[in-house]
């Protein structure tokens, strides 16, 4: 029986990665929710938008590194975020101008937007591979760890170490900062209020003199900020590979739907629900059980509920259960 070591192991392998991954998913799902609330379609290109944002951040990171500008101990990619966001705002406004605006004027069905966004998804993916190539890029520089496993062991005298990567700490801090800023914007500013009004009732908002073009522009700007930060943080945490963002689409959408599509709070809660389920179900509990149970009970296998190859099956199953039990999600987003 060694409760303390078991708890530390759980924190190291589930709590810390879960919080970091949950923050990334929450930011991604917030982007999906903003587009859904204002433009009223599910943006399949969102995964690639995140990827493109991360790519721009990496390109600017290389530029800054070659100029010798670094902000050690923080990774340089953080510095690249601001110009990357500006690039993504321009990119999203261009795609809106040439792809979505036409269908908006035609008042096309949501499914047409969906098909168009799928086309954009592959176009964006092609452009990304064209510019940066299909290979993995290492993006972390500066100090890798805030707390190393060895330091933690020396500090506490426990067998298990607790490691916190710089990228994880930055992820959580950035996510908190962005979410606070977003809610402040939506609740307190005039533009934010006009966005919520437009999302709630388009016709009434138009009657009250809200300019729809402006609302759409702000929505894409917010999406660019959310997607770039989410994509770059994910790349910083797990390494940047262009093809992983297509697979990220499922957990991101599952987060948004589980929380309730169109509800910002729901997107955040959904992100953490999905992240913790995924991390918990694919974690091998052998170590923890060894600490908790008597030696004779030590399990032979890894006690892993599902291999990590099936991690998106977890988000899918949660999605299916939510669709069956409560299709509007936890926070009663707009549905049906």
């Amino acid at each position: 029986m060694d409760l303390l070591n078991a708890l530390v192991a759980l924190a190291n392998y589930i709590l810390v990665p879960g919080i970091a991954y949950g923050s990334q998913l929450a930011l991604g799902a917030l982007g999906v929710t903003v587009v859904y609330g204002i433009l009223r379609f599910s943006n399949f290109a969102h995964g690639e938008t995140m990827s493109a944002g991360a790519m721009f951040a990496i390109l600017f990171m290389w530029l800054f590194q070659s100029l010798g500008i670094t902000i050690a101990p923080l990774p340089t990619i953080v510095l690249g975020l601001i110009p990357a966001i500006l690039c993504m705002i321009v990119y999203l406004l261009i795609t809106d101008r040439f792809v979505y605006r036409y269908y908006r004027e035609q008042k096309a069905k949501p499914v047409i937007f969906l098909v168009a966004s799928t086309g954009l998804m592959f176009l964006t993916n092609g452009i990304i591979r064209f510019i940066i190539g299909p290979d993995e890029q290492r993006v972390s520089d500066g100090a890798r760890f805030v707390m190393k496993a060895r330091e933690f062991k020396q500090l506490t005298g426990l067998n298990e170490g607790l490691a916190i990567k710089t990228s994880q700490l930055i992820t959580v801090l950035a996510a908190v900062a962005i979410v606070v800023a977003l809610f402040w914007f939506l609740e307190k500013t005039k533009s934010g209020k006009s966005m919520r009004a437009y999302s709630d009732n388009e016709n009434l908002a138009l009657l009250s003199g809200i300019n729809p073009d402006r609302v759409v522009m702000i929505a894409w700007t917010l999406t660019a900020i959310l997607a770039t930060v989410a994509g770059a943080l994910y790349g910083l945490d797990k390494g940047y590979k262009p093809f992983t963002y297509l697979q990220l689409l499922l957990p991101v959408f599952a987060s948004a739907i589980v929380g309730g599509l169109g509800s910002p709070i729901g997107a955040i809660v959904g992100g953490f629900v999905i992240a913790f389920s995924e991390v918990t179900i694919t974690y091998a509990f052998k170590k923890v059980i060894k600490y908790l149970a008597p030696d004779a009970w030590a399990p032979e296998g890894l006690v892993q509920l599902l291999s990590t190859d099936y991690k998106f099956a977890v988000s899918f199953v949660i999605l299916v259960v939510v669709l069956i039990v409560m299709p509007t999600g936890i926070f009663k987003g707009k549905s049906l």
Binding site: F44, V111, L114, L250, I257, D309, F312, A313, L319, I324
Partner: peptide, 25 residues
């Protein structure tokens, strides 16, 4: 059975998900 009758986006997500899972299996 699960996803039809809900919004068209949900159906699209569900089919996307099941195809990823089938290939993973």
């Amino acid at each position: 059975k699960i996803a039809l009758g809900l919004r068209s986006d949900y159906f699209a997500i569900a089919t996307l998900g099941i195809s990823e899972i089938i290939v993973a299996i």
